[in-house]
Write a protein that binds this DNA or RNA. Sequence first.
RNA 1: GGGCGUGUGGCCAAGACUGGACUACGGCGACAGCCUUCUAAGCUGUACAUCGGGGGUUCGAAUCCCCCCACGCCCGCCA
Length: 565
Amino acid sequence: MFLQFHRQAEEMLREALQGLGHPQVSPSLEMSPHADLASRAAFRLDPKNPAQGAQTLARGIKPGGWMGSAEPRGPYVNLSLAPGFYPEALRAILREGPRFGSLPPAPLVILEHTSANPDGPLHIGHLRNAVLGDTLARVLRRAGHPVEVHYYVNDMGRQMGALVWGLRQGLKPDPQKKPDDAIAEVYIQANRLLEADPGRQAEVRGLLLRYERQDPQLVREFREAVETCLRGIHQTLKRLGAAHDRVVWESHFVLPPELGGQGGKTAEIVSRLSSMPIARQGSDGSLSLDLTGDGIKKEMVLIRSDGTTLYGARDLAYHEWKAQTTPHQVNVLGADHKLHAAQMAAVLRRLHLPVPETLIFEFVNLPEGSMSTRAGTYISADDLLDKVEMEALRQVQQRRTEMDPGFHRRVARAVATGAVRYEMARVSPEKGITFDWKQALDFEKQSAPFLIYSHARACSILHKSGGAPAEFDPAKLTGERERRLIKKLSMLDYWIDASARQYRPHLLAHYAKELAEEFNQFYRDVPVLQAPPGTREARLALVEASRIVLANTLETLGIEPLAEM
RNA sequence: GGGCGUGUGGCCAAGACUGGACUACGGCGACAGCCUUCUAAGCUGUACAUCGGGGGUUCGAAUCCCCCCACGCCCGCCA
């Protein structure tokens, strides 16, 4: 609802500015502690006398819609919500329930995230990708987009070659272990063998070549290895609450139909590119693209001299294939993919294909340095989830001694996945993270348990009262705390819109925290169950509305809104 | 060496794209309080920052520009 107010304010300011002969001046709206929204536009009108400009501008804005008033205050124009906004916001929340905060239908989006190499378990770096990707998928869905979420499996790369090579040396995945952990052991061991005897790298290249040349035996072996690892990875993703609609293998764009692919797509796009002026044919049979015209100094190599394709070539085919479904694509990628993303964008543009949006996030490093699956220096996502869950269990057992073990377990699970997700989602993606166990296991404020707890408090009041009232008088809700809370509740759509348009889920995470704070302050200051008749019903309705908005926000962040904890 | 990103109180971190009420949102930690009223995983208060350093643009800079420093990532016929 607040989004509507914001848009109306923007529109009215534009018209007023136009009327004053300044159509080029931006409305410059901002959230303000002094008003429901404020405009700084007067600074642009006449920098010498902004106060004068603010007065003139304010006069040009007439109450109407959700606009209550426009008051000049120094150089600012302070905008207030119409009194009717508050009761209507409350009714809208109660009426729309789980749908509140959703935006009108928007185009289909294909979103690719996580897509970790199937050579080991997800580590805490992949976890950032998964949380960012899954949260963004949820945000986009609430913003009206149908979303098809893809996991793009890199099954044709060097890493997989080394893994299959290791298996052929007789290394066996330990059946007692989680499949992705077992695969990691083989992969690490295979790399040790290869480092000890670098001459055998040629054998890995040979396997890759035979896989790409569609040797059915190799196709079986690669598939078996990849699927084993993927089973484990998907267990972890499921535990996180992150679901993919579709798993797309790279080899799909290389192998023929009888081997599970749709054949030739990569060859086709490569052949099209090879006739473009930017193509550079090596005398050895390799093919690369010169992208200096796009401001990219580094050539993009598509074909090795042995004729096999590189990741970039297959990725181009994948993007062309996606474009048949929708031009709106989003890729969630680690910062190490920046160059690749820029090269992809340049080539797709030259092919007149849709260019994907990217959400690029910086690395998660350990205090002792960066993680590597090959070297075995990583903290797995499972390990983190396990430890956080143990700590959550310890705390809930301590706090709720009267409850049974099943309750403790349920709460600990929800708290743990929520805590891990929130911790990853709340930091802006361009910041690097140095992982810290102490911080990961800290459940104070600014963390998911705080958000879940606020929701549980609302549920508790409703439980004790026997539910929300059918009838109530919103006019009873005129206190400062109540109005502030309603306003905050109404802002969900504004933050969904902002997060979705900027591909920045942390904006919503930030809102969630502010919403929970506002509710907790209301909880402290405003008695509900003990309020006089009439007031009590109205406040109960407000608690129910709070419960709904908290639940919707948490759901969008992938955090389970427990009714009790 | 070049490119991209980051640098905000002891620690974590919002604000930076759209310069302006910033007297910089919060959290952790510290200190002092609040459970005879709806779950204290909560709430209140105090102390602690001039926003890496320097220069510039501007009436006005955490925010824009330039230089420098530190850290991360990339600069593979890896993905």
